[in-house]
Computed example of a mutant assay.
Amino acid sequence: MPRGTGEVSEPMYYVLTALLDGPLHGHAIMKVVAELSGRRVSPSVGTLYGVLERLNDRGLIVVDREETVAGRNRRYFRLAEEGRAVLEAEALRMQRAAALVIDRPATA
């Protein structure tokens, strides 16, 4: 199986979605994920960095740059082309699955 294929977990889906608009650092990713999910997905720092590591290992995201802010290293991540393709495929899969319920005629 190629690196980027396969399903993504809900936290992974929201992290990939958060990166659609451009590179973000970890704290910003946590904020955007919480907002996008209506606070349903709110990963801890440790969980988030585990997700980021798995996405990076699969080639779905890449490190965009690193900088030092107030004496702390800040790493920015961006969506890789393969990550965009996997995210779009997952969104279409969920849309088709939802249509099975939403488009079903009502029964009496």
Rank of each mutant, 00 (worst) to 15 (best):
V62A: 12
E53F: 00
V51W: 08
G59I: 08
N56C: 05
R58S: 14
E82V: 14
N56Q: 15
V69C: 03
R54V: 13
E66F: 00
G59N: 03
R58F: 10
D64C: 05
R65M: 05
E82I: 12
R58A: 14
R54T: 14
A70W: 07
E81D: 13
T68H: 02
R72Q: 09
Y76T: 01
L79Y: 13
L60E: 03
V62D: 12
T68P: 02
L79E: 14
V51S: 00
R54I: 12
R78W: 10
N73A: 08
E81T: 10
V62N: 10
T68S: 07
R78Q: 13
E67K: 01
R58N: 11
N73P: 07
A70C: 02
D64F: 11
Y76W: 12
R58Q: 14
L79M: 15
R74W: 00
E82Y: 12
A80W: 03
G59W: 01
V62M: 11
T68I: 11
E66M: 02
E66V: 05
V63Y: 04
D57F: 04
T68G: 02
E82L: 13
I61S: 03
G59S: 06
L79Q: 14
R72S: 10
E53G: 03
D64T: 04
D57M: 06
V63R: 08
L79I: 13
R54W: 04
R72Y: 09
V63K: 11
V69A: 05
L79S: 13
N56S: 13
V62I: 12
L60C: 06
E67N: 00
D57E: 11
L55R: 09
V69G: 04
E81L: 06
A70L: 11
D57R: 09
F77P: 09
R72L: 07
E53D: 08
A80Y: 01
G71T: 07
D64L: 03
E81F: 06
R58L: 12
I61A: 02
E81P: 13
R74A: 01
D64Y: 09
V51I: 15
N73E: 11
F77D: 01
R75T: 15
E53R: 11
L60Q: 10
R75E: 08
T68L: 02
A70N: 11
L55G: 01
R58K: 14
L52M: 10
V62S: 13
R74L: 01
R54D: 05
V51N: 01
